[in-house]
């Protein structure tokens, strides 16, 4: 899959601190890309750079292998984390205005707004002022602002915040639909559940540096901690003995109909086959599945690990001074 967007060695310094330190990543066309990181990591700065709101000190952004330029404005749809609309302006009028700023003609903008009104059940909203809408309704309007000009690249900063579960589902389905229609999506979020569910690739950023990137499935496999869930009928003591020193029991739970559930971590070079052979003698195995780490775990581990490294390096340099 060719890359729609490449960020190469982006550096951005603000007075006093480095917001982005040599950040590079690739966003394949037609995929959903997760931009992850704790608060203050530099996600919004990257997004602003891609949106040409601010310029990087060095490094380049390529879209379709062409340097980012003002023609790209109409190909990008941006949903900022802090949502904003003109409070006193009518919904329809506002959507048309913002679409025209993205380069749509008045006629086109009018037609598309009507289409989206139909899609989101927003009949009768045209003349309503934004301040008369509930927060969830405002979010819907904001989402339409982002997608109205049919951008090839959608940048969504925390798209699910502020939505009730029904509307969150609506938005999620819209994102998937747009992706299936060929759009590329950059999703910045703290909601790791939605990352696992939606994202094909991610980049994890902490303190202005990229600390992890790649395909979500591959990353989870890489960080798989040789952990397995085993379900069986029989005695838990016999099961523990059977594992011998090859594996460690992390947790156990007694389920219905006498089925025991155990989570085990394989130690050393023990293979899953060996453990399975051993436990087969201790009872009737009904399930054996590998446990992949959640993105949440990976996120927390990587960020903590990274912070410790930074601190350790910091301490060392203090000592040498």
């Amino acid at each position: 899959m060719p890359n729609l967007l490449s960020a190469r060695n982006i550096v951005k310094k603000f007075a006093g601190h480095t917001a982005l330190n040599d950040v590079s990543f690739e966003v394949p066309a037609g995929s959903i890309f997760g931009l992850l990181g704790p608060n203050g990591a530099g996600k919004t700065t990257i997004i602003r750079v891609i949106n040409q709101i601010i310029a990087p000190d060095s490094g380049t952004i390529l879209i379709d292998n062409r340097l980012l330029n003002s023609d790209h404005v109409k190909e990008i749809g941006y949903l900022p984390e802090e949502r904003g609309l003109y409070r006193k302006m009518g919904v329809g009028e506002q959507l048309v205005y913002l679409a025209r700023l993205k380069g749509l003609s008045k006629k086109e903008a009018n037609e598309r707004v009507k289409e989206w009104f139909a899609r989101f059940d927003m009949d009768g909203w045209w003349k309503k002022k934004v301040e008369e809408l509930s927060k969830g309704m405002q979010q819907k309007v904001q989402f339409i602002v982002t997608v109205l000009h049919e951008p090839r690249l959608l940048i969504l900063d925390e798209p699910f915040s502020g939505f009730d579960p029904i509307n969150a589902e609506l938005i999620k389905n819209e994102i998937l639909r747009l992706r299936n229609n060929g759009a590329t999506v950059i999703l910045s979020t703290h909601n790791m559940g939605s990352v696992e569910e939606l994202c094909d690739n991610i980049a994890l950023i902490n303190k202005g540096k990229k600390i992890l990137d790649g395909n979500v499935k591959e990353i989870r496999r890489t960080y798989a901690a040789h952990t397995y869930d085993i379900s069986f009928k029989g005695s838990m003591i016999a099961f523990s003995n059977a594992m011998w020193t090859g594996a460690e029991l992390i947790s156990k739970q007694e389920g219905e109909q006498g089925i025991q559930h155990a989570r085990v971590k394989l130690l050393g070079t023990t293979s899953p086959n060996l453990i399975l052979q051993n436990v087969l003698n201790a009872g009737e195995v009904v399930g054996f599945t590998e446990v992949l780490p959640t993105m949440n775990d990976i996120f927390i581990n990587k960020v903590q690990e990274n912070s410790e490294t930074v601190e350790r390096v910091g301490t060392k340099s203090n000592l040498t001074e």
Binding site: Q52, I53, I76, P80, E82, G84, Y86, R87, L98, K102
Partner: peptide, 16 residues
């Protein structure tokens, strides 16, 4: 101030 307060400014300056 209003544009900044409602944060719409960020949407607009991603277009102009």
């Amino acid at each position: 101030v209003e544009e900044k307060m409602t944060r719409i400014v960020e949407v607009i300056i991603s277009s102009v």
